[in-house]
Every structure is written in structure tokens, then in C-alpha cells.
Nucleic acid binder design. Structure first.
Lengths: 225, 225
DNA sequence: TCCCAATTATGATATTGGTCATATTAGGTT
DNA sequence: AACCTAATATGACCAATATCATAATTGGGA
């Protein structure tokens, strides 16, 4: 098990702003966890006792609506932190985290993180920056949900996944989502999502191989948005 | 013009975490601004040179969608800060702020705020907490937008305004919004918003006097959500 | 390799909500 | 007080999307 101070993953998140000493301290009380695809990391309403640093794999953050549907509000990937919001506001989690892949994460106890947040202004400013970015993205999603069609939102989602998380060697999106997960990001019924995907195929904007999706015409897809 | 260190408004936001000395310093370089109803405080894409502390009045934070409609993502009231997100992430504003009332705000230059954010961990942790709360609310709005009907979202909006901002002596909502603003919060067409309002009236859940809205049956309205 | 359950796909129909047209009303101005 | 404009309200219709039913396909396990 590698040590935090040598771990390259921290470069991608706020932990990079911790000093060598702080990293050593954290390294000593963290635990490394393996999570299988489909497993729930934490649920809505659960008290989080720390944050997770994602070393490998991908997960979704979702919230159950009163009508019984899950709405995915964020995809968290390798390098991201998980659970900071609940940590900061000292509340139970308002979201559920579910692994979309086999994952490897490091769990850092709350006390350590809070200590650094309160003592290291650089670290807390960095967390603040990440949260500001999340908030900005959330605002954009609100506008899209309220004002754009399912067709537009799905196009946007595919482009977002393409640009943010990249593609496999064969050109398919590297983040593999079920049609249901896609529908739950877009905020629509599974059937509607599938129908739009079929339509995009007919228009030669994308192609599919099983559940894998490949964007064939990024420019064309961008014109949909 | 009262001094920051004596101003009671700061109790409602992160500025309460600043020391006496820091408040005196800020007090010396702030400017007090009066904004008339309907005036734009800052626009999308504008570089913000500081943050605003709302001493009096209410404003909306909105974003223009590509289809030409404004989506309101937050209502900011007396006691709130305005513009922290852009400040922290050092980006142009992604939202427009428009006064819904005559307002009085204090403008605090960016350099002062950034200085305190980087030197005073208590202050930056407080700002972090506020942003975490905003993010949580934004996630809830995303879920509502994606999964609930216009009827449900409008009921929820009315209840939110009722609970968060209170009522006038006659029982009407103290935050007076046009039907258009309500529609832009809910994310629907003006006509649809008006139709649902009419329906709520028929069901004796609310009553209206001009553009003033009064919730007559909070329990009943809660059942709509 | 075959099979089965889960997922993906498509059709038919119902419902919601958007758009356009047109009244009606409120509130400010002369 | 009368007027005028903007806001509110309502009707008719249409497009987008949800729902229910059912078929086709996929991929993992025996």
C-alpha cells in the first residue's frame, strides 16, 4: 500500500495542497478499500465519517426522487474526492454513491480532514475552489434541465462524457453507462433515452456496439445542443 | 454609513468570522451602493472585482439559456453574500444578478476578500460551509427539475418562499415575484405557471390579490409535492 | 455452447406542457 | 378620473415525453 506523500493521485485534487508532514499524518490513519461494481459506497441519510479519495474506478452520485426514480447529479472518477460536502457542512449525506466499476479508494477519517481544513488555509481554499466548480456545474445542469429538450440534454451528456473522461482505443466512450444510468443523468424515462439514442444512430451522429457508445460526429452532435 | 464592525448584517453570513481588525480594514475600503428595482448588479460573463453583502432588498441569480429564456437558480436576500463563487474560482460570473426590490449593498473589493480567505481559516471554512449548503440545494433543484411535474415544482417553490423568506402581516408571501419570475424559477412557460396558480386557487390551496400570493393551506400544498 | 435473465429496443397511446391567440385586469401616469 | 400599457389569465391546439406493452438482443453463468 503506497503512502499518501508518494501517491500521484493527490495531484488531481485538493490533497496536493497538504504539506509533507500533513500527508504523512493522513497516510497513517487512512484505510484502503476495494469496492465492487454496483456496490453502494454510502447512502442518502448516512453519516459520513470521512472522505474518500478515488484511486481507481468510477462512481455515480445520485438522489432518489419522491417518485421513486434515481437522479444522477455527478460522475466521480479517479483522482476525485468523495464526501467533502457532507464533511464540511457536518450533515448526513444527501446523495448516494454507487460504484459503476470496480473501485479502489482511500478512506480518510473526518477528524483528520477537519483538522487540516481548519489549520491549512491553502488546503481549505483548494477545497473551496473545487466546490465552487461543482456549484457552477450544478447551476448549468439546472438550466439545462429546465430549458432544454431530452434530445439536447442527451447530446450534451454524451459530449460531456466524451470530453471529460475520454474514449477507449476503439473510440467508444470510456465511461460505460447503462441506458438506465444515461436516462438518470438526463432526467428522463429509459425508453425516451433509448429512443433518442436510436435517433442519433439513424442520423449517423453516434454508433453503438452492445451498450458501448461511440461518437462518430462530434460536430454534428454539438449542433444538437 | 455604519461601520462593518458594528453592522449586524454580518451575523447572517461568513463575515461574522472575521476579527475586529479585519472588519475595520474591510470597512475602510468598502463602498455602499444603492440599486433600484430591476437594475442589473452584474451580468453573465462579467468580471467581478469583489463581493456584495446585501444589507437590504432581494435579488435573483439567473442564467440565460440558449433558447433565450432566463432560468433563476437562486434568490438572494438581506444578509446574504453575492459573488463569492466567481471570486473563489477566479472566473467571470456565470450568473446574472438582478434586483427584485430596491436594494442596499456593500461592495468589498476582491483583494481584501482573497486576503482574508487565504489568511483566516475560520472565515474560509465559513465560506466553504455556505457554498456546501448552496451545492446541496442545487442538487435538490436538479432532482426536482428532472423528476417532478410543473405542478409539483411550483408548489415546492411557493412553500420554499414561504418558509425561507416569510410572509407579510396579511399573510401574503413577503418576496413578491412576477408570474414570469415564478415561471423562471420553476423552469416552465409563463402561461403554464399561471395555469397552475389558477388551479391551486380553485383547489383553495392559495389565494391571490393582484400579484400577491397567499398560501391558505400549507398542508394541502405540501401534499402536492 | 446453450440458455436465461436482464437489458435494449420499438410500437401504441396517454399525458404533460409549450405555443399562439386573445381576453381581462391591475397599477401607474397624465 | 380616465387612460394606457404591462401583466395576468384563459382557450385551443400541437409537440414532447411518459407510460404500458411487447419484442429483440446481449452477455454472463451452468
Amino acid at each position: 500500500m503506497s503512502k499518501c506523500e508518494q501517491c500521484i493521485i493527490k495531484q488531481f485534487n485538493a490533497l496536493k495542497s497538504l504539506s509533507k508532514d500533513e500527508l504523512v499524518r493522513i497516510s497513517n490513519c487512512r484505510t484502503s478499500i476495494t469496492i465492487k461494481k454496483g456496490e453502494v459506497i454510502f447512502e442518502e441519510g448516512e453519516i459520513l465519517n470521512g472522505i474518500y479519495c478515488v484511486r481507481e474506478g468510477i462512481c455515480k452520485l445520485s438522489k432518489l426522487s419522491s417518485n421513486g426514480k434515481d437522479q444522477i447529479v455527478k460522475i466521480v472518477v479517479k483522482g476525485d474526492l468523495l464526501g467533502q460536502r457532507s464533511m464540511v457542512s457536518d450533515e448526513v449525506s444527501n446523495l448516494q454513491a454507487t460504484a459503476l466499476n470496480d473501485m479502489e479508494v482511500c478512506f480518510i477519517p473526518k477528524s483528520e480532514i477537519i483538522f487540516d481544513l481548519q489549520k491549512n488555509p491553502k488546503f481549505s481554499f483548494d477545497v473551496l475552489k473545487e466546490m465552487a466548480k461543482d456549484l457552477r456545474e450544478a447551476d448549468n445542469i439546472i438550466v439545462n434541465m429546465a430549458q432544454k429538450s431530452v434530445r439536447q440534454r442527451l447530446a450534451e451528456t454524451l459530449i460531456y462524457i466524451h470530453n471529460s473522461f475520454g474514449t477507449n482505443p476503439d473510440g467508444t466512450l470510456s465511461v460505460l453507462l447503462s441506458r438506465e444510468d444515461l436516462a438518470n443523468i438526463v432526467g428522463t424515462a429509459i425508453e425516451s433515452a433509448i429512443r433518442v439514442i436510436s435517433q442519433f444512430k439513424k442520423e449517423n451522429l453516434i454508433s453503438t456496439k452492445g451498450k458501448h457508445i461511440k461518437i462518430d460526429d462530434l460536430i454534428g452532435l454539438s449542433r444538437v445542443v
